[in-house]
Write a protein that binds this DNA or RNA. Structure first.
Length: 254
DNA sequence: ATGGCTACGGAGCGTAGA
């Protein structure tokens, strides 16, 4: 079971890159964030052509999350308390539960959006708790660099790296959801620094959180950094994880 | 200290991203 998660920064602008990654890596489940399009304008047909079923939760211009799966999608849920934006989507598919998550960026420490970000992370933990005893993997752009080593400058302590943000991520981990790609390098490099890629001035803000049962069957994972080096790239790289085969136990049909 | 760049909407340039 292969899962890829990617903040694509517009599904329409990135369509060819996304389809290339799908064809090259053949994920069973593909989680997208920041699709930036209303559901009625989502280019679904390209994904259906590759054999994917889809669940989408979009809005005009901003945010937007999606789940594509080679398996049937059941129990689709896009509700998160306190969040009226399109930033959360979960489903049961291929014998496991997955979520595609786009945490608000928070803009600046202590502004209104920052408070919203912290509240989002609190509500997210409550949402995850329902999946604690399931095989569950949440992938997404969490907009938090959990440790010093997740910032190219270890002394960086502004947005994405404040104590409050890190404590809320720590609470997810302490609740049993493991950051399974914690040692795999950066996932985001700012468009606005021309040297950010060349000198690897990145951050690790895209994560997979795996429940205990999902952690047990986790095999390997990686950051698909090459996708950040393409022409007209997203500012995020995709992250990939492989789980050992699972599914029959839950009676899910492909 | 500031801005760097990109996508969007909608036809200017402001807003958001992190």
């Amino acid at each position: 079971m292969r899962i890829i998660s990617w903040n694509v920064n517009s599904v329409r602008a990135r369509l060819e890159h996304i389809l290339d990654v799908a064809r090259q890596y053949r994920p069973d489940i593909f989680l997208l964030q920041e699709t930036r399009v209303e559901d009625r304008a989502f280019p679904l047909e390209y994904f259906e052509e590759l054999g994917y079923n889809a669940a989408i939760n979009g809005q005009k211009s901003r945010n937007g999350v999606a789940i594509f799966s080679k398996h049937r999608l059941e129990d689709v849920d896009c509700h998160l308390d306190g969040c009226s934006e399109a930033r959360y989507l979960a489903a049961f598919t291929g014998g496991i539960s997955v979520a595609s998550v786009y945490v608000p960026n928070g803009q600046e420490v202590n502004c209104e959006q920052y408070t919203y970000k912290l509240e989002f992370l609190r509500n997210l933990k409550n949402k995850f708790s329902a999946f604690l005893d399931e095989v569950f993997v949440a992938g997404g752009d969490f907009n938090v660099a959990p440790e010093k080593c997740d910032c190219h400058n270890p002394n960086y302590s502004a947005i994405m790296a404040t104590e409050s943000e890190r404590n809320l991520i720590k609470a997810l981990v302490e609740a049993g959801f493991n950051d399974i790609l914690a040692k795999n390098g950066f996932t985001w490099w700012d468009y606005r620094r021309s040297d950010s890629l060349r000198n690897d001035k990145g951050f690790r803000i895209d994560h997979f959180y795996a429940s205990p049962a999902a952690t047990e069957i986790f095999q390997t994972g990686e950051v698909l950094r090459f996708a950040r080096e393409l022409a007209r790239p997203s500012d995020h790289a995709p992250i990939l994880c492989d789980l050992s085969d699972y599914g029959k136990k839950r009676g899910s049909t492909p």
